[in-house]
Design a binder for these strands. Structure first.
Length: 297
DNA sequence: TAAACGACCGCTATAATACC
DNA sequence: GGTATTATAGCGGTCGTTTA
């Protein structure tokens, strides 16, 4: 590649073209004429030695290479934008705004308090509204301002949104303190005989991906209860002999629980932040995102 | 230092193509 | 045929480099 031909503006054009998949719409967003963007696309094609976007019935279809380039180029541009805006004025002590945060009940319980405490200390006039995550509506909510930031599995976010990975979560098995069968290194046979609570966020389901993994091994666990939220699970297990797989961070500081590893490796999940272009460059929102990143470290 | 030159970029106009 | 969309031609302005 001849880097002398490289112009950062071309990468910005590529980013918008991949979002719009339409030269005319990309041109409107970039405040350029359609031919100007068409010419830039031609230069991008020359630069990457690939068609990148192929004219289709309506708009354009990205090539495999274009799809491959999208994420790394966006990350590179974000880094440049971050560098340019890092030192823009934002005074947490004087800031006065409300940040609407959408996340699952589990995340509200795990990090909600930490966020509020840090904000009260560093930005006393910044308020946080916590609301339930609605994945199907999230993109629209982020676009229209109902939500400013979502905490969720970044891989599940619509591709047009901005994401940042925060941490990887794993599941652990919990039961009441002194539970007679709940020990580390228990056998798979003992494990499936325990009385399990499962969490089905959309309600009432008894078969989870973990059960499918068990099924593949020829086992089926004894599920006695399905609940729609992680929040009540610790209370249920402390008052019974039930056990449950819950995210490890939920158990931190809980002295009334026995926490052991599951004898079957249960696929964990990642947690990240998801936000819209609308708040991407906003210094206060940037500060909030940085603050949450630091809390999660 | 200033003029000349050339490369580059974006513009308007328009051709080509596909769809309704 | 009208509309939507991309691509190209030709033109003018800007900017960096070269040269006197």
């Amino acid at each position: 590649m001849d880097t002398k031909k490289l112009d950062l503006n071309l990468l910005v054009t590529f980013e918008v073209l991949m979002e719009e998949k339409n030269v005319s719409k990309a041109a409107a967003r970039l405040h350029l004429s359609q031919p100007a963007v068409s010419t830039q696309l031609s230069r991008l094609r020359d630069l990457f030695n690939d068609q990148l976007l192929i004219p289709a019935r309506r708009g354009m279809i990205p090539t495999a290479k274009a799809l491959e380039l999208t994420l790394p180029l966006r990350l590179a541009l974000d880094q440049v934008r971050d560098t340019l805006t890092t030192h823009q004025n934002f005074e947490p002590q004087q800031a006065d705004l409300t940040v609407m945060l959408a996340c699952t009940d589990y995340l509200q319980s795990v990090i909600g308090l930490s966020i509020i405490e840090t904000l009260r200390r560093q930005a006393p006039n910044v308020k946080v509204g916590l609301r339930s995550l609605e994945p199907a509506r999230l993109e629209a909510q982020l676009a229209n301002g109902e939500v400013d930031l979502a905490l969720m599995t970044p891989e599940a976010a619509p591709p047009a949104l901005r994401t940042r990975h925060l941490y990887d979560e794993v599941y652990v098995l919990i039961g009441r303190k002194g539970h007679p069968q709940l020990v580390d290194d228990m056998s798979l046979e003992d494990y499936v005989r325990l009385e399990h609570i499962v969490v089905s966020l959309d309600g009432g389901k008894f078969l989870t991906p973990h059960d499918q993994a068990l099924k593949a091994l020829g086992y089926s666990r004894n599920v006695v209860l399905s609940v729609a939220t992680f929040l009540i699970v610790p209370e249920l297990v402390t008052q019974s002999n039930f056990v449950a797989l819950v995210p490890k961070r939920m158990t931190l500081g809980r002295t009334d629980l026995t926490v052991v590893s599951s004898p079957v490796t249960s696929t964990g999940f990642s947690v990240g932040m998801v936000w819209h272009e609308r708040t991407h460059g906003h210094s206060a929102h940037r500060w909030v995102r940085e603050m949450i990143s630091h809390i999660m470290l």
